[in-house]
């Protein structure tokens, strides 16, 4: 007789309220209210961090002045997700790290308006070095998904 194996269903349900802090709160407000993308400069090495953070972990120094970046930039890395994963948007979708003009680091977002019928061709259109521009959504909630990238 086969021994029975029991499975106990479980689900973790933990609510978090991540405080975005002063720096990110300003970034999100600028994005929502003024359709501007603001980077922040390290007070020591001067690199413009995008997305902005309160300090530079390399210099171990606080962030300094705000700098507007974009509205165009260059793809530095990308992928096209084809598989459906639990909790993810429905595939296919493309995301890219884009170094916005005036920033020293690259920021992640969706790339919209692509034709995924031929995956390799879609990937070719996103190759490293490709120029993109920022597109703001009509309805903005003060979240990172208030904007997207599209090919120039």
């Amino acid at each position: 007789m086969a021994e029975e194996l029991v499975f106990i269903p479980g689900r973790w349900d933990i609510t978090y309220n991540y405080a975005a802090g002063k720096v990110s709160s300003k970034f999100f407000a600028e994005l929502r209210d003024n359709k501007r993308l603001m980077g922040i400069k390290c007070s020591r090495c001067g690199r413009v961090m995008m997305p902005p953070r309160g300090f530079c972990e390399r210099c171990f120094a606080p962030a300094g002045e705000w700098v507007e970046v974009g509205p165009e930039g260059t793809i530095q890395a990308f992928t096209i997700t084809v598989e459906k994963f639990e909790g993810n948007p429905d595939p296919p979708f493309a995301v890219a790290y884009v170094q916005l003009d005036g920033a020293d680091t690259a920021m992640l977002n969706y790339v919209r308006g692509l034709d995924f019928s031929d995956l390799n061709r879609a990937a070719e259109s996103l190759r490293v070095g490709t120029r993109v521009r920022v597109v703001y959504k009509e309805q903005r909630a003060g979240e990172v998904t208030d904007f997207e990238y599209e090919l120039v």
Binding site: G21, K22, V23, R53, G54, F60
Partner: peptide
Amino acid sequence: TEKPDQILDEVIFEAAS
């Protein structure tokens, strides 16, 4: 009781610094 003006990373950075 709360530190809404700092994200967790910043609280840690403050102590480490």
